[in-house]
Design a protein around this nucleic acid. Structure first.
Lengths: 348, 348
DNA sequence: GTGAAAGCGCTAACAC
DNA sequence: GTGTTAGCGCTTTCAC
């Protein structure tokens, strides 16, 4: 009864106006039934549903997502935006981002949504508005707020389904999920102090939101240990290994007096270890090193890297949860993802 | 003249049947003009075109991609598929993939196409057919052929816009772009032999297509150097660092006699260095190590890693070129991407 | 050049 | 239940 029953593509028009172009599934008796059956609608009795699904399968029928999206005004797609500022290098080289993207993709896929990847140069004004209005995604995840705090605040007024990975900042109206960077910085410093270090350098950017928070944690940690903050021990390095390595090599060359390094990320911590080793300083004997992220390689470096671990599984789940809540029109607050100190050979 | 001229969304219907829902751009006089202007159609004189574009911008008008896709039967989207077999771990941890995805995204974005990311468990039959038929993308890139050679051959009969990153295999009808893995294996072994090594172990998988080719290169390299192939020097390890580290540690524990390791990837080469160091073997003095990929970290490990470099920029460009050719209905052959030996401290 | 309409494939709504 | 229709927003075609 349910096989090749005539009628086609636009079942309705086909019958009514004889305008069928033969481009659609020819086996449908009633397209509504098919729609419902494939959607698992309980209005259709289970056995019939299964039968329809099976026939659809043998005919290789899959709903056309463009048409569905147009009709339903939803795309079943989440846009994941990777902002590129001038710091382009970071994303290419930092394993942290792959893991983040991978975990987000897992969470999104689990909900039967697709992932649309945007690499965006955020220096072009209107970048976010353009993405939003193209209606290619039902919601957006932004990995890192870069220096776009104001843009995000402005957009958040009218566009709700947006969640940002990054720091929570004063006066922030958009939803952000991020690690507890300040706590992470304090943990790292407290650990180094406890290991007997007194002259602890900070290696990394200090102005980007996340970096600023880790830097703040570093300063708080020093204060709590009764150590004075010394600006001479702050080494500016951005995100790439090459840059960080050069920066720390220059720092060593100045003859600076330091016995520990707290680095903004594992990647630049590993670069620091390379530079220190090259300069004949032993890690951890001469200089202890602590990183941030706990990338896979941290455990296998020589020496293994002590680091502040970010729980990306938790973070990705949180971000996607928040996003779907917002897509459903529910409120969703910003959230902090916990961090944890992982002590390995580079610091003790 | 071109400002808020009345009529709206469905300009045609709006006028004809007075059914406008006021949901579209209200400022359009003639939607066709807008369509053409935004597409940069030279039919419209340049000054008028610019004016229209500007007005559209001030009104925040962006074409709805779902509607456009439905009408044009194209999505301006490329699907990038990351296959997950049982070797799920590889993609999460291997920086090689991030760089690959990043470079592909760059190439695709440069052509004004969007990137749709699919993480797929390839053990479910019909995974590729389902992706193809959902019509969400105009073309597909598959990163790694996994063990799906037969599926790909079958699909390639009817679906043309598909390019695979991976090995070229006998009887292959789909388009593949991949590094010259055999040459890479030979280069690595020749280098180790020249450095005086004679008992060279192979660390990695030997059955997956790319791995098999690197393994073949290893065997050819041994033969060319007049060295006998010794199955006892083949250490099975898949893609994760943990696994590789355990495998090489076990291998060392057996008391095997070897003075060099050629590893399938940089990631497992780094794991091997970690295991060797832990076991008290010096790299490169006791054991020389050569990897494959030249990930960013290879240059900064201790010791820096000698490796067979894959040119991902070239590879990504090649893949996307081939794909667009196929999307345009032109034939596009498989291609080989060159490799290069980068000698660093781990082998000399 | 300008106005009118068709129709991409789908789903929801409405009438019977 | 079943049949019919509208219409999502866009682009192209056809007629004037």
């Amino acid at each position: 009864m349910w096989e090749l029953h005539g009628s086609a593509c636009c079942y309705n028009r086909a019958i009514g106006r004889n305008q069928c172009r033969d481009s659609g599934p020819r086996w449908m008796k009633d397209q509504r039934q098919v729609t419902r059956a494939l959607a698992g609608n309980p209005l259709i009795p289970k056995p019939l549903r299964d039968q329809i699904v099976e026939i659809a399968q043998t005919h290789g029928y899959v709903v056309n997502q463009s048409a569905r999206s147009l009709r339903l005004r939803k795309t079943d797609t989440i846009g994941v935006i990777i902002p590129l500022g001038h710091e382009t290098g970071q994303l290419i080289s930092d394993p942290f981002f792959l893991e983040m993207i991978g975990r987000l993709a897992d969470e999104i896929t689990r909900r039967n949504y697709a992932v649309l990847l945007h690499k965006v140069v955020v220096t072009e004004t209107g970048w976010l508005e353009r993405i939003i209005q193209a209606h290619r995604a039902d919601g957006l995840l932004l990995i890192g707020q870069s220096n776009q705090h104001d843009v995000l605040n402005a957009v958040a007024q009218t566009y709700k389904p947006l969640v940002v990975w990054g720091a929570q900042l004063p006066g922030q109206t958009y939803c952000a999920v991020g690690s507890d960077n300040v706590a992470g910085g304090r943990l790292a410093v407290a650990h180094l102090v406890q290991a007997g270090r007194r002259k602890i350098a900070f290696l990394g950017a200090t102005h980007a939101p996340e970096a600023a928070q880790r830097f703040e944690g570093y300063r708080q940690g020093l204060a709590e240990a009764g150590l004075a903050f010394d600006p001479a021990l702050v080494v500016a390095a951005h995100y790439t290994m090459d840059e960080a390595r050069e920066a720390i090599a220059d720092f060593i060359a100045t003859g600076a007096d330091f016995d520990a390094v707290f680095a903004f990320s594992d990647v630049i911590a590993l670069a620091a270890i390379a530079a220190l080793t090259e300069a004949g300083r032993s890690v951890p004997r001469d200089v202890a090193v602590v990183g941030f992220d706990d990338i896979v390689l941290a455990r296998h470096s020589a020496p293994p890297l002590t680091t502040v671990r970010q729980d990306l599984e938790f973070a990705a789940r949180k971000m996607v949860d928040r996003l779907f809540a917002r897509m459903a029109g529910e409120p969703a607050e910003s959230a902090l993802s916990p961090v944890e100190l992982i002590v390995r050979g580079s610091s003790v």
